[in-house]
């Protein structure tokens, strides 16, 4: 059972990709498949980001240790889908028109936030290995990986701006990210106050 956790999580993370492939092949992506694919990939990346951010609070609050064992995997898959999302935007949506992409990024905060989110994920994905953890030293590595909190905030705003009007579901997701960050903040304050031993 314990051994199956990581492979099972890996398989689950592959399901959206297979699903989108089947849909693309059966014109299930609708009249505007590029837009649909962009939305689906971005949404998948966002959900994986939320799941990644949920691992530590689950340990803090529920005392579960198993989510920590798949945290790296979830984070890596979040980056994987974020890459596909970004590449779909640059390659298909913008047709590799780099001038248009640059203008878009600089002029529109919706696109800027999306690109900033991806750029911040990049160093986290690169240094997500044990080797990099050792090379940086755990303290510095940990400090670097706190960037993921910022990623959570930026991604939420990017998601919010996707729609003409703020939607209930995007606001709900912002709430989820807020709660996950808040749990950490409370735990940090309590740790500092010496009420709870650091795990």
């Amino acid at each position: 059972m314990k051994k199956a956790l990581v492979p099972a999580a890996f398989a689950a993370c592959c399901v959206p990709l297979l699903w989108f492939a089947v849909q693309a092949a059966t014109s299930g992506l609708g009249a505007n498949p590029v837009e649909e694919l962009l939305n689906d990939l971005g949404y998948t990346a966002f959900v994986l980001l939320a799941l990644t951010l949920a691992c530590t609070p689950l340990q803090t609050v529920a005392g579960w240790n198993w989510p920590i064992r798949i945290r790296k995997l979830l984070g890596d898959f979040c980056f994987f889908y974020a890459c596909l999302h970004m590449l779909t935007y640059v390659v298909i949506d913008q047709g590799l028109d780099f001038k248009a992409v640059a203008t878009d990024v600089l002029k529109h905060k919706f696109i800027f936030l999306g690109m900033a989110t991806w750029l911040l994920l990049l160093p986290l994905a690169v240094t997500s290995t044990r080797g990099w953890q050792r090379r940086l030293g755990f303290r510095r590595w940990k400090r670097l990986h706190r960037l993921v909190y910022l990623v959570g905030g930026l991604a939420s705003f990017h998601f919010l701006l996707r729609f003409k009007t703020p939607r209930v579901e995007t606001i709900a997701w912002m709430g989820v990210i807020c709660v996950l960050l808040l749990v950490r903040a409370v735990a940090a304050v309590r740790r500092r106050a010496g009420m709870v031993q650091s795990p």
Partner: peptide, 16 residues
Amino acid sequence: PRWSQARERRIGELLR
């Protein structure tokens, strides 16, 4: 406010 209007995607076409 959130995107450029210089190009458009004709439904049924891949590139703008």
